[in-house]
């Protein structure tokens, strides 16, 4: 991390994350009239953890096991040729057909929308879903593409200088969502 970041505020605690996941699961069931033909695709890496949590809630609601896949969008990024550290390509693991399925993409933070654009291109290369919906834990605004989320855990107005950091037990050992602010350089 190049710039120094200061913790500004905690916007979700463990219980808040849990409530958001539960609500998103209920909204998914309501919007799709159940869980038939539903699949969840998480974006590496925290989107996958969230997708698994949503699937667990969906099982408690409807009783069915909802398939969860993992999508790595590195090969579809629009900034690959730009100067910067080269992103590591990780594995896409979707061991089921997405043809004619109701696909819910799951990511932790929605920001410019470019990752979701890449993810949709990636999905279309794997098949022809009946529809694609988007679930995110945090929507922080500042879209650069005409993309919106169908399910949002929390809307958080931010500035470009801020960073939203999602910490999940599976990756980070604890559940928390923080907004970090870039520290002003003192000379």
């Amino acid at each position: 991390m190049a710039a120094e970041l200061n913790e500004k505020a905690q916007i979700l605690d463990p219980a808040g994350i849990q409530r958001a996941v539960t609500r998103i699961a209920h909204e998914i069931v309501e919007r799709n009239n159940g869980t038939d033909e539903l699949v969840l695709i998480g974006l590496r890496s925290r989107g996958v953890d969230l997708a698994r949590r949503i699937a667990k809630e969906l099982k408690m609601i409807g009783g069915a096991d909802i398939p969860v896949g993992t999508l790595d969008v590195t090969l579809y990024r629009d900034d690959l040729g730009k100067v910067g550290p080269q992103p590591v390509v990780r594995k896409t693991e979707i061991p089921f057909s997405i043809n004619e399925k109701r696909v819910v993409l799951v990511d932790d933070v929605l920001y410019t929308g470019r990752t979701i654009r890449a993810a949709m291109d990636g999905l279309i290369d794997l098949g022809r879903p009946r529809l694609i919906q988007l679930a995110v834990l945090v929507d922080r605004g500042h879209r650069e593409l005409p993309i919106r989320a169908d399910y949002v855990g929390k809307n958080v107005p931010t500035s470009h200088q801020e960073q939203v950091q999602v910490l999940l037990t599976e990756e980070d050992g604890l559940d928390r969502v923080l907004v970090l602010k870039e520290q002003e350089k003192v000379r």
């Binding site: 090969l75 579809y76 690959l80 896409t92 291109d121 990636g122 290369d125 794997l126 098949g127």
Partner: peptide, 11 residues
């Protein structure tokens, strides 16, 4: 990628 039906990524 090599195992997909559509073997093409834009990287």
């Amino acid at each position: 990628v090599a195992g997909r039906d559509i073997k093409k990524v834009p990287a």
